[in-house]
Amino acid sequence: MDELERIREEIDLDRRRFVKKVLGGVIGGSLLLVLPAGAVKVAQQISGLAAGTDPVDPDRKFAFVIDITGCIGCGYCCVADKNEFQVPDGYYRTWVERYVIDDQDNVHVDAPRGGLDGYATARLDIPHPVRDTFFVPKLCNMCEKPSCVQVCPVGATFRTADGFVLIDRQRCLGCSYCVQACPYSVRFIGPESRVAEKCTWCYHRLAQGLRPACVEACPVQARKFGDLNDRESEVYRLLHEPNVISVLKPEMGNEPSLHYLGLRREVV
């Protein structure tokens, strides 16, 4: 109760300072600012999963959907990911690419530091007027036919019954054959662990009923995660409505479970 009082007083103090500023004319113009209409969506939890439940459940078919039209390139997903897995510098479990298309149809792509620092500044090296820009977050595609599992010589990378491609860190040789085989370049050999590492769609969070860290961190819900066998889930709806939706490099035949809403032909 004391703590609550203290916070309340603090907020009141803030308000008094603020009122002073308003009355002093410092922030007068702010009153012309207009607010957006409409309620903000509240994040949905993954139902039925909690600590103690068996993480492998073949009745679930998880899918990841990334809304390219929604991503604002803040890079906070990458920050959350780096915090969650303490990813070493220079290696990326997930990253966000920036696509800039100029009016000569040249495509300029970059991802400095994998987008960890966001994209607060414009690219200055583009010679023509910019016609279009967008961001593309990348992470493990959780293929139904994963090349990495195919090539792992010792079965240290494997696909679980519910479709997660995971790495057995106790048995990985660090031969990096899987790194070579992944068409999406989501794997790396950890400089400290010296075994293969990659995005797991936060398998460990899921086991606690939590959504993947990057999904949780996305302020605009451009990253969506859910169970395709749950007809109420957003991913089910998105994948079954007539949306512009596709996967990366379909010609590889890996059948990713990672889908992109509004995927553009420039994206590789």
């Binding site: 010589p153 010792v154 048995r171 990985c172 040789l173 660090g174 031969c175 010296r194």
Partner: peptide
């Protein structure tokens, strides 16, 4: 080359 040369024998144990 191997990141974990001590596990090389796994190639004989559990060849995929």
């Amino acid at each position: 080359h191997l990141g974990q040369p001590g596990r090389a024998l796994s190639m004989f144990l559990t060849p995929n």
